[in-house]
Design a protein around this nucleic acid. Structure first.
Length: 569
RNA sequence: CGGGACGUAGCGCAGCCUGGUUAGCGCACUUGACUGGGGGUCAAGGGGUCGGAGGUUCAAAUCCUCUCGUCCCGACCA
């Protein structure tokens, strides 16, 4: 490709509305332009990169038996009503009406559509399992889109869906998929972790996320270097405390005045105790009313763990309104002693003695509280969020590290949630009707490209991992209007193309400096710089973008060397 | 949805507080000349409903009201 013919509108300055580096660089490199909040046009250079990601995905998913389909972006409301998600999905679902006033949505995901296809066409166990996937744009009306195409409203996504006769078979595909994802992200040149994850509103029994480690990530990942355990912090398990012997002479329960002291810190200072001797009581409401959770004063309760433990439809922090309906609750002085609500306690609580809780009276706390003697607990479980350096739950001496991550892929076992709701059933060998067991597996294509930039850039611009680079080589003549230089450039260009190497020839009339700046910015892995001085000695300069190292090579021998040079990048 | 900020040429910004000829600057763009190994120099140009509507005023980019858009923090979320 000749640079002068390519539409690559590069910018010297970063756009004012870009925050993270990948967003800035994608705009500066002329890969994307914003049309509206969270909605981007992909320009030629950006598209070449997205196509690379897509192609890697296709090869790996095809490898495990996936079949690509292309699905409608506009989906009828009826389908979403069947799965009960028309109401449940909320405002993120962009709803539209056609000229007949029929309701549709712009697809944020395609479980309904794919399940509809499969239920209509597949009736027998003989046709299962089946793995279908699509690579298309989807739309989620995010509350707050940000970070360029990393969290857009319209975004390119690969979604795969599998249908099985039973859970075991689903797990097989799930594990194959996990391996395929590992291959994909390795080939993309990313440093990532496969982490245990919450299944969120998609629903289902268990799931893993693939997280690219980067400071700009929106997720927090807890992991143990020693044994490799890794989990989204939302789910990261805490190690149960080792049992402690009961005290020979426990303190007795005592009410003390704590005037105006509401927070753990205030109470701890006032009573001159460490925060870990205070027990926090946090109230939530769900479809059945209020529930209480107990965690140590120096810990934070984890609502997702709470919700999973209780097994309720929804759970949210109790508002003032809900609290005021229940007598005896005073903000800042809530405690579990004598509380007539279901109480769930973090397992660390069981290792405490002589601790402090609210007394359910204004400005009063209990001291000398004992779990066994004073509390009535529904269930003791792991309901706190882990901290860095907490002991690893899976090995002896490991400790948690916490880093931020970008969620580029997510795989779920859905079970029969959608197949039951939408009657996707098959006949088994006994002629008995069963709901299909499903899995679903997503990869954010644009987000993967953005994550690659987050991990691979320097002050000059993008440094593409070789497999994602829009071109492998860029030829930069000092002056393309010089016929000697032009001949050499053209020759190298033609030969590289013959070898199947994607090559960009910067034929622009610009000065060298500008061309080099652009080449650095758009991040082509290998630059071949051709100038009159070196050429007089029969040499051209090759420069590796990543290391910034350059060396002189004999022309035309250099042409033969390029493939092996590229291989090492 | 709560809090904060911004909107002036393609991009980045100044001017606004304290209203007053023709609204500036850098980059980019056009033409010409010189130049030619890391965004070169000189000269001459083109490009603006100052986001929109309404109001105050003799006079509004500037003050007021409303509105639209965009970004940030939070809540939310695959």
């Amino acid at each position: 490709m000749h640079y002068s013919k390519l539409f690559i509108p590069t910018l010297k300055e970063s756009p004012a509305d870009a925050e993270v580096i990948s967003h800035k660089l994608m705009v500066r490199a002329g890969m994307i332009r914003q049309l509206a909040s969270g909605i981007y046009s992909i320009l030629p250079l950006g598209l070449r990169v997205l196509r690379k990601v897509e192609q890697i995905i296709r090869e790996e998913i095809d490898q495990i038996g996936g079949q690509e389909v292309f699905l409608p972006s506009i989906q009828p409301a009826e389908l979403w009503e069947e799965s009960k998600r028309w109401d449940f999905y909320g405002k993120e679902l962009l709803r539209i009406k056609d000229r007949h006033n029929r309701e549709f949505c712009y697809g944020p995901t395609h479980e309904e559509v794919i399940t509809d296809i499969v239920r209509k066409e597949i009736k027998s166990y003989k046709k299962l399992p089946i793995l279908l996937y699509q690579i298309q744009t989807k739309f989620r009306d995010e509350v707050r889109p940000r970070f360029g195409i990393m969290r857009g409203r319209e975004f390119m996504m690969k979604d795969a869906y599998s249908f099985h006769t039973d859970e075991t078979d689903t797990q097989n595909t799930y594990h194959q998929m996990a391996q395929a994802y590992t291959n994909i992200f390795k080939r993309c040149g990313l440093e990532f972790k496969q982490v245990q994850a919450d299944s969120g509103t998609i629903g289902g029994s268990f799931s893993h996320e693939f997280a690219v480690l980067a400071d700009s990530g929106e997720d927090e990942i807890g992991f143990c270097e020693a044994c490799g355990y890794a989990s989204n912090l939302e789910l990261a398990e805490s190690k149960p405390p080792s049992p402690t012997a009961p005290l020979s002479s426990p303190q007795s329960l005592k009410e003390v005045e704590t005037p105006g002291k509401k927070s753990v810190q205030e109470v701890a200072e006032f009573l001159n105790l460490p925060a870990r001797q205070i027990v926090k009581t946090i109230l939530f409401e769900n479809e059945n009313g209020l529930v209480a959770g107990l965690v140590r004063g120096d810990h934070e309760i984890n609502p997702i763990k709470m919700k999973n433990l209780i097994g309720c439809e929804w759970l949210q922090p109790a508002g003032e309104e809900a609290m005021s309906k229940h007598p005896g609750l005073h903000c800042g002085y809530v405690g579990p002693v004598g509380l007539d609500l279901p109480v769930y306690a973090d397992h660390e609580i069981t290792a405490l003695h002589d601790f402090v809780t609210g007394a359910n009276k204004p400005s009063m706390h209990f001291t000398g509280v004992q779990v066994e003697r004073d509390l009535k607990i529904e269930k003791v479980w792991d309901i706190r969020t882990v901290h860095a350096n907490d002991p690893c739950p899976r090995c002896e001496n490991g400790k948690y590290q916490i880093k931020r991550g970008i969620e580029v892929g997510h795989i779920f076992i859905l079970g029969t949630k959608y197949s039951s709701a939408m009657k996707a059933v098959f006949l088994d060998q006994q002629g008995k009707e069963n709901a299909m067991v499903m899995g679903c597996y997503g990869i954010g294509v644009g987000r993967t490209a953005a994550a690659a930039i987050e991990q691979n850039h320097d002050e000059k611009g993008i440094v593409w991992p070789r497999n994602l680079a829009p071109f492998q080589v860029i030829i930069i003549p000092v002056n393309y209007s010089n016929s000697d230089l032009k001949n050499v450039c053209d020759n190298i260009y033609d030969k590289l193309l013959e070898m199947g190497i994607e090559t960009l020839l910067d034929d622009r009339a610009d000065r060298l400096g500008g061309k080099l700046k652009d080449a650095d910015l758009i991040g082509i892995p290998l630059q071949i710089i051709i100038g009159p001085k070196n050429l007089a000695a029969g040499q051209v300069e090759i420069k590796v973008r990543k290391t910034n190292e350059s060396e002189l090579r004999q022309y035309p021998q250099v042409i033969e060397d390029i493939p092996s040079i590229l291989k090492d990048l």
